[in-house]
Design a protein around this nucleic acid. Structure first.
Length: 480
RNA sequence: GCUCCCUUCGUCUAGAGGCCUAGGACAUGGCCCUCUCAAGGCCAGUACACGGGUUCGAAUCCCGUAGGGAGCGCCA
């Protein structure tokens, strides 16, 4: 069997009861990279007719905050990635916050202790640091040296009696091979000897990531873990934990990281990196999802897709194994497309903060439809709002030259035409053309400049329908 | 350092030994349409990281090399 068909087989095998999850830690706002893994996990569940769950990994109380937790859920919901179970949608397999699952972890720790698969470690942070440094200096992998693994019962008892703080370490078996099939990368195999004994419970009693993450996936019935490639070499540890606890091991799939234009992992210095930032700029969830969907995944066509269509097209075996560059230009393209496809109501809602208060409905509609083709973000409306509803525009030199070239008689005729049929640009242009003998660019450019102050912009007819009564005539008359 | 992962136009990608003179999209340039901008239409340039194999035939399989990335934490 080839590697790829193997992958496809894995993906389809568990089709019956697929459960995928997204498990963020609330230590920041939703990052684009995380949003993408969330999207992929969501699509995988939908594609296989399964369930998508959300679990909050807030075991590190110091870094976690309620605000980030709330923001992440808002952003996820905004993207349309609705979870079937998770915070706010509790079920029998919850709670879906790790901070509320400590009792469950305690049971598992007890099981491991009974089986002597873990041991207390009394090494201090300083000792571990020194050990790591010296191993690195000696050209060796910086793994836990095993100091406390080899403590005899008396030594152990002495330390415990002394009340020394202790972590709980997993006793990694020697000389074993941990193998699994990654549904993105294919067959993987690691030597257990390359893995140092790792901490499963911190000195303060809280569960460490490797542990709580793996154990919760099992408890929540997760069948497919789709996550970032940074977890690939950590998977063997989690498999070891699950096997030790005799819990089911999910299928793992690791997607390559999202990187910036320079090829380094996406970070603050690349500009906006969180969903929230893009959302606040006015990018649509549609646009963001369409970009994210194509980063590390191919699309069946070049159209703007909705989540249901993406789900049907989602193919885990084809997930990217090479890092994908986040390209702002591509996001803009999807944004333009999504603006084009919005309904009138949606555009109105999207631009609400940018529109003047108390605009009559017809004016509002006319204005929105006039500027829509020229708008990528809501802030782009500002310029046209001023031009249409503000004071008569001030000309630049080039614009003034167009006015001068047309001459006073031209604008006198135009102003007369505007007085006859206010708001009807076609009629104004036709009448002015007839009166002056001008047509084409010679006719339209001076009109455009007099009306908007610019040589370029949206179509004049709809723009004029939005202008206040008498405004067009006044603007034209200025140059008569 | 060790282990693991990755490498197709500038970018996102198609590609499962012959359908590849390598396809599409974005971006770029040109033309058309058009009062202008946007949109739309047409056209152009640009890629299989490198070197060896295997094969009648390699972007595709194997081995090296180079470059990039991740992990090796009482972070997740």
């Amino acid at each position: 069997m080839t590697e790829t068909s193997e992958r496809a087989a894995i993906a389809l095998a568990a089709q019956a009861a697929t459960v995928t999850r997204f498990a963020p830690s609330p230590s920041g706002n939703l990052h684009l990279g995380n949003a993408r893994t969330a999207l992929f996990s969501f699509l995988l569940a939908r594609r296989l007719g399964g369930r998508f769950i959300l679990r909050i990994e807030d075991t590190d109380a110091r870094r976690s905050s309620e605000e980030f937790c709330r923001n992440q859920q808002e952003d996820l919901a905004w993207l349309g990635l609705n979870w079937d179970a998770g915070p706010g949608r509790e079920d029998a397999r919850g709670p879906y916050r790790q901070s509320q699952r400590v009792a469950r972890y305690a049971e598992h720790f007890a099981t491991l202790e009974r089986a002597r698969l873990v041991y207390d470690c009394y090494c201090t942070a300083l000792e571990l640091e020194v050990s790591r440094k010296s191993q690195l200096a000696a050209g060796k992998p910086p793994r836990y040296a095993g100091t406390c693994r080899h403590l005899d019962p008396q030594q152990r008892a002495a330390r415990r009696a002394a009340g020394l703080p202790a972590t709980l370490r997993f006793r990694v078996p020697l000389g074993e091979r941990v193998a699994f099939v990654d549904f993105v990368h294919g067959a993987q195999s690691f030597l257990s000897d390359d893995i140092g004994d790792f901490v499963v419970r911190r000195a303060d009693g809280s569960a460490a990531f490797f542990f709580s993450n793996a154990v919760d996936d099992a408890a929540m019935g997760v069948t497919h873990v789709l996550r970032g490639e940074d977890h690939l070499t950590n998977s063997p540890r989690q498999i070891l934990i699950l096997q030790a606890l005799q819990l089911p091991v999910p299928a793992f799939g690791h997607v390559a990281l999202l990187v910036g234009p320079d090829g380094t992992p996406l970070s603050k210095r690349h500009g906006a990196t969180t969903v929230r930032e893009y959302r606040e700029q006015g990018f649509t969830a549609r646009a963001l999802c369409n970009l994210l969907f194509r980063l590390g995944h191919s699309s069946p066509d070049n159209a703007l897709l909705d989540l249901a269509t993406m789900a049907r097209a989602f193919e885990p075996a084809h997930l990217g194994r090479a890092p994908a560059h986040f390209d702002a230009a591509q996001l803009r393209t999807w944004q333009k497309e999504s603006v084009k496809q919005m309904t009138a109501e949606q555009v109105g809602e999207w631009l609400r903060a940018q529109l003047p208060d108390g605009l009559p409905a017809t004016t509002r509609t006319a204005f929105i439809e006039a500027v829509r083709p020229n708008i990528v973000l809501p802030e782009d409306v500002g310029q046209w709002r001023e031009i249409v509803f503000g004071d008569p525009p001030v000309m630049g030199a080039a614009e003034q030259a167009v006015i001068d070239e047309a001459g006073r008689d031209f604008f006198a005729a135009a102003a007369r035409a505007a007085g006859a049929g206010p708001g009807d640009f076609r009629a104004i242009a036709a009448a002015t053309g007839t009166a002056t003998g001008r047509k084409g660019k010679a006719l339209f450019q001076p009109l455009r400049v007099a009306l908007t102050g610019l040589t370029h912009g949206p179509e004049l007819a709809p723009l004029l329908r939005a202008m206040p009564e008498g405004s067009a005539q006044a603007r034209l008359a200025r140059f008569a």
